[in-house]
Amino acid sequence: MKSLTIRNLSKTYFDLYAATHVTAVQDVSLEVGAGEFVSIVGPSGCGKSTILNMIAGFIPLTGGEILVGGKPVNGPGRDRGVVFQSFALFPWRTVLENVAFGPKMRGIGKAERDRIAHEYLALAKLTEAAERYPNELSGGMQQRVGVMRALANEPDVLLMDEPFASVDAQTRMTLQEELTRIWQAKRPTVIFITHDVAEAVFLADRVVALSKGRVLEEIAVDLPRPRSWDALHEDARFKALTSRVLQLVRSA
């Protein structure tokens, strides 16, 4: 894993229909240490997904710079793994083949990449599902595969774009707990985008509150790990942190 540096990042684009320039992201700076888990939280349209898409290299930035391990980002690459809200699993590949996709692109032989994929599948308790196709799995299972597919490629930074927004509430809590467990086991650098304040606080070492394309404040989350909802949802510090972040996001 490596550190991520964002300096004075901005994104403006020209809206062809409205014939005006629109600023989606304005002068955002952020320093994420190697192995750190940072949540970016904000309402819809605050620019959080735009920031993630720029870090991933999916869309060009119009100002500032993004450095991964000191090197500027130029287009998508295997150093930045992405987990999508829509899962974006390959329907024509089995679960095992999906997870082994990254290693395959690196030229790793079949036996070795299957071994790697099985190791990560076991980590998410997906061993039973290895030979199935994504459409045969529940949404929660599919997103477990999505996370493992990104991790199995050993990215320097893991980018997660509202990954649990399209699964039911109970499954979401399980996935959040699993994510903290897996993060502790593998310690990747994570940028986690969400509009769910409790989720942001529960998962992260630090929460970045965003509104209208600007950083409002960064809040350190010094809750002990491993974290579980049973322990935290009545916890006074957790409640204080979430209400603080909520106030920030709502007041802006």
Binding site: P76, G77, R78, F84, R106, A150, N153
Partner: peptide, 12 residues
């Protein structure tokens, strides 16, 4: 996102 997923996983 299917294209993006493949590119992020290192596909040319």
């Amino acid at each position: 996102n299917m294209h993006r997923a493949a590119l992020s996983l290192g596909a040319s």
